[in-house]
Amino acid sequence: MAKRPLAPCCPRRAMFHSLNQMLPDAAAGACDVIELTVNDRKLQLDVSEQMPLLWALRDYLGLTGTKFGCGAGLCGACTVHLDGKAVRSCVTPIASAKGKRVTTIEGLSAVSDHPVQLAWIAEDVPQCGYCQSGQIMQAAALLAEMPNPSDAQIDQAMAGNICRCGTYNRIKSAILRAAGNPNQNMALNAGAAVDSGLAQEATEVQS
């Protein structure tokens, strides 16, 4: 894939601030301070041990890249890594993350350059994008365990992650690409066939 256009600024980013300044407040309570390692940072939280990891990440640590979809481990939008394994953070009590490494989409790579993220960009996978953090975390865990998954293995590993927009074909292409086997038939660069002559060259727009 050739040059990408510059990323637009995320106009809303300013209000999605990291809530780090809230941490002292969160830790102000006396009892049950839970120590966590999130994206290689050691953190302390004063919340119930039963609170699902999802809400600790989102509402106390400001890591909102991990999404709430079903609250019941049915859709995969909340997928994060616990010691490198994909888990559904909406049904994972924070107690079970104690002493383990939690990795969220924000910590998957330093500059969005994890092979799965690069493949996702190359295949232009997202639509609404809401499920994509979970999809990417699931795919990254799959490839860490199984560098060359078959179609069936991809299906099996990814079947817990719902996308209502229908990005499944491109997700599969991106996983194959990240594994080093880009599926040219399904790649974006093949583009939709256009009959009209309006867009004969199925190339990316470049300046």
Partner: peptide, 14 residues
């Protein structure tokens, strides 16, 4: 021209 989405980069990193 088939044009990649402008919002893809910020939808793959949260």
């Amino acid at each position: 021209k088939p044009t990649p989405r402008l919002d893809t980069p910020i939808k793959v990193n949260g």
